[in-house]
Design a protein around this nucleic acid. Structure first.
Lengths: 107, 107
DNA sequence: ATTTGATATTGCAATATTACGATGATATAT
DNA sequence: ATATATCATCGTAATATTGCAATATCAAAT
């Protein structure tokens, strides 16, 4: 085994799990927080800020990119990206919905 | 490697990542949603509801328990647990804080 | 055209996760 | 006491994740 049985779960559950998975690493939390606090698009400096090797940062960025949290240009040297705020708000809403939907009558 | 370099990150980042990790599996999302919607504490039926084997469900429940999301008795047959609502609210607040803290002046 | 500066990709080793069968433990019913 | 029902633990196989060195790529400057 080792692979999740995604097919037995609903799309909603799989989607939220996928988002959570991206957030399930302190480096990616740190990267997201750093980018989200910038005034402008980011150029490099993440390797210095986070403290992991360049290939590792690159991989983490890719995971973040996969769920649509980054926007900008990713071409060669003119790369310049920042948080996709629309997507950011969507994720926030997903978590909000999940946590809001609780039966307060229990216990 | 294979292990996260948790020591180079802040407690806050590690904590949020740990919580996200628990939510990073559709089975655990489904389990949490199911329990959180119940009127009463849960007794069994999770194996039927989710569709994974009993040992697997047991493992997932343990992960959820580790971050304090369940309360109740876990002794033999008198087991009876439900969502720890205080903790639930804490986690909700953690995600809310993370997503709220974004610089809207960028792009 | 070559160098430079920066990110991406590949390949690999170490570790973690997911899943389940077999087994163990524990409480209740018979 | 024995059987039954239910959850926990162990052991193991399959797969995924993390991290980095080496290397490739790519755009701009020289």
């Amino acid at each position: 085994m080792g692979a999740s049985k995604t097919h037995i779960f609903s799309t909603t559950h799989n989607e939220l799990a996928k988002i959570a998975k991206v957030m399930a690493h302190p480096a990616r939390i740190a990267i997201l927080e750093y980018i989200s606090k910038q005034d402008n698009c980011i150029c490099n400096d993440l390797v210095d800020v986070i403290g992991l090797s360049q290939p590792t940062i690159s991989q983490h960025l890719n995971e973040i990119k996969k769920i649509g949290l980054l926007k900008g240009t990713f071409e060669g040297k003119n790369l310049c990206y920042c948080i996709n705020q629309e997507r950011w708000d969507e994720l926030q809403e997903s978590f909000h919905l999940f946590f809001s939907n609780i039966n307060r009558n229990c216990c």
